[in-house]
Design a protein around this nucleic acid. Structure first.
Lengths: 210, 210
DNA sequence: TTTAAATTAAAACGCATGTTTAAAATGCGC
DNA sequence: GCGCATTTTAAACATGCGTTTTAATTTAAA
C-alpha cells in the first residue's frame, strides 16, 4: 500500500524537471503547478516563494552529493600521490548516486548547477559555500596537492574554467547531442559526455601555466 | 563638427552594455531606452523586435571578428606544423580588434556570446552557422590537424567544452574577479583571464582521450 | 461527532514585459 | 514656405509573472 505523492513532492518533481530543461527564470510557477497537477497557490503555501522552491530543489541533490563527495575526497587525501585525474574521478561515484534521488539525477543536477551559476549570481553560490564550504576547501587543497606548481590564484581560475566547461556541456547537452548525432551518426548518451569531459578537464588543469 | 549619435546607434550602444552585464532576457527594452535616452517605441520602430535588436548587437561584433579570425586561420593553415595552442592563439588578435567596435569590446563580446549560448538556444547559433559556418569549419579542420589522434566526434565535444569554459569565465567574470581579488589580494583584469584561459584550453584539447 | 487546524481551491492583485497605435514633431526636397 | 515622408512621442494594449487573499475542503485529534 503505497502512499500517494504529497503535494510538496509533486511540486518538487515537476519543478526539478522543468528547471533542468529550461532554467529557473524561464520556468514559471504556472508551468510547474500545471505539470504537477496541483494548485498554483500551493507553491507559496508549501515553500513560501519561488526562490525558496529553487533552493529546495537544489538542496535535495546537494545533500546527497556533498557528503558522498566529501568522503571520496577524504579517502583520496590520505593517498601519498595525488593526481588531478584522481581528484576528478572522485566525482564519478557521488554523481552516479544521484540516480537514487531521481532517474536521470546526475544529468539533471548538473543542468541545475549550470543554470544556478549563470542565472542567479550570488544567491545559490552563497548557499553552497555556507553549507558545503569545507568540501570545496578540501577540493581546492587536493587540486593544489596534485599541482603544487600552480599558484592558488591560478588554481582558483582553472577550477572555474572546469566548472564552466562542465556546466555548459550539460546545459547545451541536449542540443549538442542532437548535432553530434546528425554529424557523426552516433547516438551519445549524457553519461558519455562525462566520460569525454573528465580527460579534457584533467588535461586543462595540468597544463603548464604559460 | 561631429554628428550627434543617431537614435539607432544610441539604442545599440545602450543595449550592448546592458546585455553584456545582465544578459539578454534579463534586460528590458525600458532599461535600454532609458539608458539611451530615447523613446521606448523606437526600438520596435528601428529594429522591429527585441530579438532583432539582439541579433543586430551581435552582428556588429561578429562582422568584425569573423573575417579577422578567418584570415588568421587561413594563414595558420599554410604552416607545415599546427598545434592546438597555435589555433587558439589565432583568436587573440581578432578579439583585440574588437576594441575598435567599442572600448571593452573583447570582454563585452565574450559576455554576449556567453548569454547567447545559455539563453537563446537555437536562434543565434543558427545565425552564426549560416553566416560564418565556413570559419567554424576551418577551425575544426585545423584543430583536427593539430590533433589527428582525436576522432571528429571527440573534437566536436572538446570544442564545445572550450566554448563552455570561455563563455562561463566571461559571464561569471566580474563576480569571480571580485572573489579572486578578495582571496588573493590581486586585482585581475579581464584580459588576464584570457591569458589564464588559453593554456587551460590547449591542455584540455591536447589531453589523451581516455 | 465535534471542532480546530492544515490543506486545497479559485480568483484577483499589482506589476513588468514586449508590442502596437495614433497623434505630434521633425527633416527635407521642391 | 509647402507638403510629404520620416521619425519621435505618449499612451494604451495584451499578456504573463509571482504573490496574496478569502473561502471551501479535507484531515485528524478530542
Amino acid at each position: 500500500m503505497v502512499k500517494r505523492l504529497t503535494t510538496k513532492d509533486k511540486i518538487l518533481n515537476a519543478a526539478e524537471a522543468l528547471f533542468a530543461e529550461h532554467g529557473f527564470e524561464q520556468t514559471s510557477l504556472r508551468q510547474i503547478t500545471a505539470d504537477a497537477q496541483v494548485n498554483l497557490a500551493s507553491v507559496n503555501y508549501h515553500f513560501g516563494s519561488k526562490k525558496a522552491l529553487i533552493q529546495a530543489v537544489m538542496a535535495r541533490y546537494l545533500e546527497v552529493l556533498m557528503p558522498a563527495l566529501h568522503q571520496e575526497l577524504q579517502t583520496l587525501s590520505q593517498q601519498p600521490q595525488i593526481t588531478t585525474r584522481a581528484v576528478f574521478d572522485c566525482f564519478r561515484g557521488p554523481l552516479q548516486e544521484l540516480i537514487h534521488v531521481c532517474r536521470q539525477g546526475p544529468t539533471i543536477f548538473l543542468s541545475l548547477l549550470g543554470f544556478a551559476y549563470t542565472e542567479i549570481q550570488g544567491h545559490l553560490r552563497r548557499y553552497t559555500m555556507a553549507h558545503f564550504g569545507d568540501v570545496i576547501q578540501l577540493l581546492l587543497t587536493l587540486l593544489h596537492a596534485a599541482n603544487p606548481q600552480l599558484s592558488p590564484a591560478e588554481m582558483f581560475w582553472r577550477l572555474h574554467f572546469v566548472l564552466g566547461a562542465t556546466v555548459f556541456a550539460q546545459v547545451s547537452g541536449p542540443a549538442l547531442r542532437e548535432i553530434a548525432a546528425a554529424d557523426f551518426g552516433e547516438a551519445i548518451e549524457a553519461d558519455d559526455v562525462l566520460e569525454r569531459l573528465i580527460p579534457f578537464l584533467a588535461g586543462g588543469v595540468d597544463a603548464p601555466s604559460k
